[in-house]
Write a protein that binds this DNA or RNA. Structure first.
Length: 156
DNA sequence: GCCAACGTTGGC
DNA sequence: GCCAACGTTGGC
């Protein structure tokens, strides 16, 4: 039974269309211990919502899949990367990440505002005031409820 | 090991 | 561009 997750990204940097184009992507650059620990829990085949942040409107735009379990984030060792972390070493890497693969776009974006109107989703970290986790767990109930919002709509 | 200052996130 | 929230850092 796969577990479910949510991946936030700024579409200017990496969007669902980008993921569709490249097929899979190392989810590198996450520099939060909490988010790192969440990624370490992910298993091959787990599904995730793909969420666009820092645009108007923000919302869930697609579904992705964990295609590689947590491994050291390559950007932490790359001096030329903005995510280079001189305090981390290959013998004991500080930052870990999964790879995500494209599954599908939703028939339409589900805006954050719409998610807020559903009481059963009120405990999602995404909707909690001040919660800024870039990678989050999603319960099976939340997963089913959100997909049901667009289930009857035509795929686009 | 406390806690104030700082930096980042991300909706608005 | 603003600013609330909150994780991290660093002085002590």
């Amino acid at each position: 039974m796969p577990r479910h997750w949510l991946f936030k990204t700024e579409p200017d940097a990496f969007s669902i269309d980008d993921l569709q184009r490249v097929g899979r992507e190392e989810w590198s650059g996450v520099r939060s211990f909490q988010a790192r620990n969440i990624m370490r829990e992910m298993k091959l085949g787990d599904l995730g919502f793909f969420y666009h942040s820092s645009i108007q409107p923000p919302g869930i735009v697609g579904v992705c899949e964990v295609v590689a379990e947590a491994h050291p984030d390559s950007t932490q060792f790359d001096r030329k990367s903005e995510y280079w972390d001189p305090s981390s070493g290959r013998a004991n890497p500080k930052w870990w990440c999964v790879d995500v693969g494209f599954v599908r776009k939703l028939p339409r974006m589900i805006p954050l505002d719409e998610l807020r109107t559903i009481p059963a989703l009120a405990y999602m970290p995404l909707l909690r005031r001040g919660q800024r986790l870039s990678v989050q767990p999603v319960t099976p109930q939340e997963w089913a409820l959100i997909l049901a919002l667009v289930a009857s709509e035509k795929s686009g």
